[in-house]
Design a binder for these strands. Structure first.
Length: 843
RNA sequence: GCGAAAGUGGCGGAAUUGGUAGACGCGCUGGAUUCAGGUUCCAGUGGGUAACUCCGUGGGGGUUCGAGUCCCCCCUUUCGCACCA
């Protein structure tokens, strides 16, 4: 029999915390603040699985411990509730997405509440709530005022399956990263946000963030700043010039040809009659291949291209070099034209060797007949650059070009402006109108929120317009300022919009007169610890930083960055079972025979592999089941005990029972299993020598305290287990020690800790008890074990007093029988002594 | 192909950052308690060996009195980027 009834204990304390508003956000300003935030979830129809609470439990431990340490803690939860899945579900079931969303939120909240997470639920918010999205629209007005929102006819990523466009960040290898649906290029008029205007600050301010190094690198790469030069190439017999962008102007003397992208606007003008047919054929050929094909083939495919018939003049040495057209040059990056230096660029080298173009070495260091050399080195064959290294040569040649009006320093970015409209229903309507003369203007703040109109069908119209085109009466409106007839925008904002600023709305979610209270913002911002998945490294986290900087420029927030410290929790996986036809099986439908898995019914072999939990793969574990069987505290402990928070691990329900046994032992230290009364094991003070128990206590306090800071909570739990194991061995333990332990256990296992705390006579919640301090002196031992090595191999151990003198330790080491045996009478050449650790005798 | 991270018992993972490898948990083996256990308690549990001992942190070299930890080469896995000039 388990020792305690988790069902009644969980329910009892959850009720009590809610009734007494135990975790209401403090309003005093006398204590230091700590804002700990989880990435809020999209409330999907599938509900929660045990992967979700991993991050939430970690932040809950931090929040609860910080409160006990004397911080005012802001800990909140909300819903990223606009988005595609609800809309698709709505189409399928013919139910309004709002109803579906409400239903899903109720499920999520119910599941979350069973975990005993210490959220201030009075601050709950949902991005699809008009009280919330009014302010999302309001921020768009700010972006407009700053000239950062505009409409443009652009080549977009259009996903036919979804009937909507997608942002660059949402597309990879020609498919939508969420669903795998193919994406094609189309020219459409869209809302754009000028995130590129913030590119430098988005890179430079990364330096001040305590974020995972990988995520910082990904953001830098995504923004992709390249510093180089624009260089003008004149052409024989025309006044046109070709401008190229290069990061290696120092290799200009090695430039042996120029390449234009097939779409480059000068291609037509410069192609000679003799080459026209070949060039036209090539352009037709490359134009036929979709963006997707060109992406997937990418780097390994042999390079293709044709000569235009025209020569360009290399500005540094006046040499005539041919102009080619090739699709390895992208129209959309830089100027759509490059000068090629095959000796020092791998792509150019591949192209030049294929088409027999000359390779001229200008940087020493490699063998350019064999491969391109891209490293640093002394310049040669480069006139006034000879002898310089890459950096010096770049500076010198840029200055040289600038003096002669042939070039200038230039910075380019991989980052493009953010495509901000979607042809969907379930999102924020734009607070904009278009007048009958085509003028687009934003509505005044007083006209907000622009409420999403009711529809009963959510598909795009039959002629391909967005779902909101169905809201005929809603679209027709008047300019509130002039009364002129106007049309509303039928696009909606992308799902990222709401999550770009929710951390600010949590500061004062009940206020309808402001987006957030300025005083609250000054006190609470920025977010001290932000925990969520690494899949948002270049999406949400980049967009949110961008908005935050705009709000900073508007004087609406006082920090440059929203999230001071970021942590990614690893994903929980579980083996799935699949037969050759791709059918998945639940784990109770298969069995292991020898080393292979068979489907129980068909006896067919099934393949097993560890995958991300997903309803469609039949490998989800529901936290409700864990709470039913083991209790919330056992689940919480296991979520964190599994391994380092940042790493992904396989779920093992057996591990939950191990955590439950730990709590059972904890319980039995205080409560008699038979009677349910006090165990009689808790004493007024130590009996005899209990320094081992005391040391285990202080070690646990130390590790848990450090773990709250470093989020290394798995080892913190291990040390708490050591303490309980020590106590289990003792006949009595001081009550005071046990209570100190309960306090450090309480952030992890709050229900059991509260219950025991109360049974020990406390009238107030353990969550309000002060955090115990550990004593370094109590961690020390009187006698320590010293390892004795001969030639670096362990040959024995000796126990000595902790303060034993070196000479005594060495003497004891030499006298150790095993050691004597291995020394075999040989003279000792060297004695290494590491204080308190080991002795190594070298012969 | 480029970049980053990681490879430790049957399994999840520890290891004071160069100092006794395998903490803690799961699983397993034996014993005790129990009418009965998916109970609890005790003992054991990296591999080989009867033992002395030997071998062991993906593989191979190296530095060092001493390497899971540092250096070089290689292999594997995961993630990110993928002709960005």
């Amino acid at each position: 029999m388990p020792s305690f009834d988790h069902k009644s204990i969980d329910a009892r304390w959850q009720d009590r915390w809610a009734r007494e508003r135990t975790f209401a956000t403090p309003t005093d300003r006398t204590r230091p603040k700590y804002y700990v935030l989880d990435m809020f979830p999209y409330p999907s129809g599938a509900g929660l699985h045990v992967g979700h609470p991993k991050g939430y439990t970690a932040t809950d431990v931090v929040a609860r411990a910080r409160r006990m340490m004397g911080f005012n803690v802001l800990r909140v939860m909300g819903w990223d509730s606009f988005g595609l899945p609800a809309e698709r579900q709505a189409e399928k079931e013919n139910i309004h997405p709002r109803i579906i969303t409400e239903r899903n939120i109720a499920t999520f909240k119910q599941q979350l509440s069973r975990l005993g997470l210490s959220y201030d639920w009075d601050r709950e918010l949902a991005t699809s709530d008009p009280r919330y999205y009014k302010w999302t629209q309001w921020i768009l007005l700010k972006l407009w005022e700053k000239g950062l929102a505009y409409q443009a006819e652009v080549a977009v990523n259009f996903c036919p399956a979804l009937g909507t466009v997608l942002a660059n960040e949402e597309v990879k290898d020609g498919v939508y990263i969420e669903t795998g649906d193919p994406v094609e290029r189309r020219l459409m008029k869209q809302w754009m946000l000028r995130i590129t205007a913030y590119a430098d600050r988005l890179i430079d301010d990364l330096d001040e963030l305590d974020w995972p190094a990988g995520t910082l690198a990904m953001q830098r790469e995504w923004i992709g700043r390249s510093i180089g030069a624009n260089v003008d190439f004149a052409m024989a017999g025309t006044s046109d010039v070709i401008q190229v962008f290069t990061t290696r102007p120092d290799t200009l003397f090695g430039g042996t040809y120029v390449v234009l992208a097939p779409e480059h606007k000068l291609v037509d003008a410069i192609t000679t009659p003799a080459q026209r047919a070949a060039v036209e054929a090539y352009r037709a050929e490359t134009g036929k291949r979709s963006e997707r094909d060109r992406m997937t083939e990418a780097a390994d495919a042999p390079k293709t291209g044709v000569f235009t018939g025209t020569m360009a003049i290399n500005p540094v040495n006046g040499v005539e070099i041919p102009i080619w057209v090739a699709d390895y040059v992208l129209a959309s990056y830089g100027t759509g034209a490059v000068f090629a230096c095959p000796a020092h660029d791998e792509r150019d080298w591949a192209f030049a060797t294929r088409f027999g173009l000359p390779i001229v070495e200008v940087v020493k260091g490699g063998d350019v007949a064999q491969a391109a050399y891209v490293g640093d080195g002394a310049h040669v064959n480069s006139a006034f650059l000879d002898g310089l290294d890459n950096d010096d040569a770049k500076d010198k040649v840029i200055a040289w070009l600038a003096e002669r009006g042939k070039g200038e320093r230039s910075v380019r970015y991989r980052l493009r402006d953010w495509l901000f409209s979607r042809q969907r229903y379930w999102g924020e309507p734009f607070p904009t109108i278009e007048l009958d003369d085509g003028t687009v203007k934003v509505l005044p703040e007083s006209a907000l929120p622009v409420i999403l109109p009711e529809l009963d069908e959510f598909k795009p119209t039959s002629d391909g317009r967005p779902p909101l085109a169905r809201a005929v009466d809603w679209i027709r409106t008047a300019d509130p300022e002039t009364g002129r007839p106007a049309m509303r925008e039928t696009n909606t904002m992308p799902q990222w919009a709401g999550s770009c600023w929710y951390y600010l709305r949590f500061l004062s979610p009940q206020r309808d007169d402001v987006a957030w209270d300025a005083e609250e913002e000054k006190y609470w911002m920025n977010v001290d610890l932000y925990v969520g998945g690494s899949e948002h490294a270049t999406l949400h986290l980049l967009y949110a930083r961008f908005w935050h900087k705009v709000l900073f420029d508007c004087g609406l927030v006082h920090t440059k960055e929203p999230f001071a410290r970021l942590f990614h929790q690893g994903m929980i996986h579980k083996p799935s079972f699949r037969d050759t036809r791709g059918r998945y099986y639940y784990d109770d439908e298969v069995e292991k025979v020898g080393s292979t898995w068979l489907a129980k019914e068909s006896r067919e072999p099934v393949e097993t592999r560890s995958e991300k939990m997903s309803k469609s793969k039949y490998n989800v574990v529901n936290p409700d089941d864990m709470c039913d069987e083991y209790g919330a505290d056992s689940l919480r402990l296991y979520e964190l005990f599994m391994g380092p928070l940042e790493e992904g691990t396989d779920w093992a329900t057996d591990g939950v029972s191990g955590c439950r046994r730990f709590l059972d032992r904890t319980w039995r230290l205080a409560v008699d299993d038979e009677t349910g009364g006090p165990s009689g094991k808790l004493a007024d003070g130590p009996s005899g020598d209990q320094r081992d128990v005391e040391r285990a206590l202080h070690q646990a306090i130390k590790r848990v305290s450090e773990g709250v800071e470093s989020l290394r909570l798995n080892v913190a739990i291990a040390d708490m287990m050591v303490f309980v194991n020590e106590c289990t061995k003792s006949t009595t333990i001081p009550k005071d020690w046990y209570e100190q332990f309960l306090r450090i256990l309480s952030p992890f296992a709050p229900h059991v800790a509260e219950e025991l705390w109360e049974r020990l006579g406390h009238r107030t919640s353990i969550s309000a008890a002060p955090w115990p301090a550990f004593d370094e002196a109590k961690l020390k031992r009187d006698t320590i074990t010293i390892a004795i090595q001969v030639q670096g191999k362990l040959r024995g151990t000796i126990d000595v007093a902790a303060d034993a003198a070196e000479a005594d330790v060495l003497a004891a080491a030499r006298a150790e029988p095993k050691v004597v045996e291995f020394l075999a009478g040989k003279p000792i050449k060297r004695e290494v002594y590491v204080k308190g650790r080991l002795v190594n005798l070298v012969v």
